[in-house]
Design a protein around this nucleic acid. Structure first.
Lengths: 254, 254
DNA sequence: TCAATCGGAATGTCCGGACAATCTGACTAC
DNA sequence: GTAGTCAGATTGTCCGGACATTCCGATTGA
């Protein structure tokens, strides 16, 4: 009779470099993540107990635990008391992050193109002022862009940024995404408040996206904050739903 | 001349109960979270250094750090080396969680109602079988519901569940949400893969939601997994975009 | 044969300490 | 007056250990 399916404990070759400035727990978690991604650690397989793993690597248990915990937080591992730590069964991709449309498209091999329609300073409307936390009628950047994939319009992006944060160069905006520019300017993105909805296209909207008036559009509004809690960007986007939808993985907060 | 704004270090009354079975770090993090929610800890205020906080509470520094870290993970606090830990400036609500439409509506005071249209066993289509990881044509639960708020239809929900997991009682489905039933049945929800889009309503869809044919609809598809990685639910939902939109807060993963 | 009990194994919590990295502000030198 | 330097403060990383809690399987008893 065949033995019942038992998730095997996997022996990996792991190693850490103590002379590296990269934290030890981070080195370990990256190697484990790579092994999961690569398939060396198969879903359901046990990781082996923490104490022995620590001894094998010459690390302390807290350090090993910190590495494992970071992967648990990402949803790649599950720990169970008395049982052990195992790789999650399901096809977990990535938890939802603050994604950039440009990067998403590029990763999907869609070769995105951007057409900057407007790049100017305007007085903040009440709505924009409230979102960015600046005074009404004070100057803010306004950027309107059309994002295309395979030459077809895909999304219309209208963004507002507080002044003084970043130098918005039209040429740069056409070759990369806004988030990448902000990160390059030393802004640490931290969180965002989003709202996703749908509505019928107005005539102006339809024209921009090569749709018909009244066609359904996917809409997204977002305020992005940096690590000090300042609002650094407010955007109103409309997407062609036949060309784009939001896909992401959620984790239950525990 | 007025003094420049300086974020004050706040002195809170904190205490822990060592006889409680609740972990010490959790007691502390809950008190801190409550203080933030309540406004005692104002945005931008410093928390005071960890060492002194630990001494004041009679705890060790790792325990205090664990409490603070859990709030950092939730996006409520920000730590900066050499500076300290401070409350995030922005109006952080809650990071996106695996939300239940029913609970969301109830929390918003909308008094949701549910009408169960279908509650039966059907053979799994290829699409459903793939999503749930079961054999094609094997039996799965199919539940169709209409969710109303203030007597108006708001969303049409079609869900599939693998058999044997839960007893689906129509009366219970009309008085509470599916997720709450699953949790009550001992299922630990862990993660979900979602896709949000939009499309024009077909005649049948329009009729169900009291809209016109061709009206824009917001759509959501979701596969939910429990903590072992099993798929426990697959759903296809359509929402009236004039009545509902998805709102959530994202954190950048670091 | 089946159910209750026990013990091993693994993670969960907590401690106290040590040193490194980084930021801020004050001091010093030009 | 301005720029560079230094010291203090604070979090980041890491160690080694201790005991509690929970799960699962094996032994024991009916």
């Amino acid at each position: 009779m065949p033995k019942p399916e038992v998730d095997p404990t996997v022996q990996l070759e792991l190693s850490v470099d103590r002379s590296s400035p990269v934290p030890l727990y981070f080195q370990l978690s990256q190697q484990l993540e790579a092994a999961i991604e690569h398939g060396t650690l198969t879903p359901g397989s046990l990781l082996g107990n923490e104490i022995e793993l620590a001894a094998r690597l010459g690390l302390s248990r807290p350090t090993v635990r910190q590495a494992i915990q970071s992967l648990v937080d990402k949803g790649l591992l599950v720990r169970r008391r008395g049982v052990g730590t195992q790789v999650v069964h399901s096809q977990v991709k990535r938890p939802l992050e603050l994604s950039s449309l440009y990067d998403d498209l590029e990763a999907a091999g869609q070769r995105p193109a951007t057409k900057v329609l407007v790049n100017t300073l305007v007085p903040a409307s009440a709505e924009v002022a409230a979102a960015l936390g600046v005074a009404e009628d004070s100057d803010v950047h306004r950027v309107e862009r059309l994002r295309l994939a395979h030459g077809e319009p895909m999304a219309y992006l209208c963004n507002y940024l507080p002044p003084g944060l970043i130098d918005l160069d039209t040429a740069q905006l056409e070759t990369t995404g806004l988030y990448r520019l902000m990160r390059a300017a030393g802004i640490t993105l931290h969180s965002a408040r989003q709202s996703i909805g749908a509505r019928a296209a107005t005539t102006a909207e339809a024209e921009r996206l090569a749709e018909e008036t009244g066609a359904p559009l996917l809409t997204m509004q977002r305020v992005t904050f940096d690590d000090t809690g300042r609002a650094v960007e407010y955007g109103t986007h409309t997407y062609r739903p036949t060309r784009y939808s939001f896909e992401f993985q959620l984790l239950v907060r525990t």
